[in-house]
């Protein structure tokens, strides 16, 4: 310790303090301030650039999401339209089918009615023809039967026999 104090040179201390003060002042003004300011500016710039890049990325993502959404919506709309069209088509077909069915049923019913009435007419005609024919036949038979006088009398007698007096 004694030696340390003995070695202490006030002159050197004085110069060191003076030089360090001047050096501090000069470096502060001409070196550290511009250096640190430039570093700060640069770092700030980098930070801002990164942030804006991030922002742009986000915006891009938003845009992409928007696009996706719009695309999905469009697709959904198209699907809906398709489905609707299909439904419509089916409905039309079904309608057409049922229409056709009723029409056909109607026609069939009409046809049946016609058939029935035709049949009735035919039967009636047939009946009348059969009746005429049977009368003609009967006429002929009768004529043949009654072409002799005996027979005519016999018939009258039998018929009179059938008739009972009331």
């Amino acid at each position: 310790m004694d030696k340390l104090i003995n070695d202490f040179s006030f002159g050197l201390f004085f110069w060191q303090a003076l030089i360090l003060l001047v050096l501090l002042f000069l470096l502060r003004k001409y070196a550290w301030k511009p250096i640190l300011d430039s570093l700060n500016n640069r770092e700030e710039g980098i930070k801002n650039a990164l942030e804006s890049a991030e922002e742009a990325k986000k915006e891009m993502q938003n845009l992409q999401a928007d696009n996706e959404r719009i695309f999905n919506e469009a697709r959904a709309e198209r699907d809906g339209m398709l489905k609707e069209a299909k439904q419509l088509k089916e409905n039309i077909i079904a309608d057409a089918k049922s229409d056709a069915q009723t029409e056909a049923d109607k026609i069939v019913a009409q046809a049946q009615a016609t058939i029935v009435s035709e049949k009735k007419a035919a039967i009636a005609e047939l009946k009348s023809q059969v009746a005429e024919l049977s009368i003609e036949i009967a006429e002929k038979v009768v004529r043949k039967e009654l072409d002799s006088k005996d027979k005519q009398l016999e018939l009258v007698e039998s018929m009179l026999g059938d008739v009972t007096l009331k």
């Binding site: 060191q16 030089i19 360090l20 050096l23 470096l27 001409y30 070196a31 301030k33 430039s38």
Partner: peptide, 20 residues
Amino acid sequence: NVVTILLVSVLMLLMFGGLA
């Protein structure tokens, strides 16, 4: 030592002044 300090001071001024 004073000369050396001066030399270092000048060196520092040149080095960091140049950087600035």
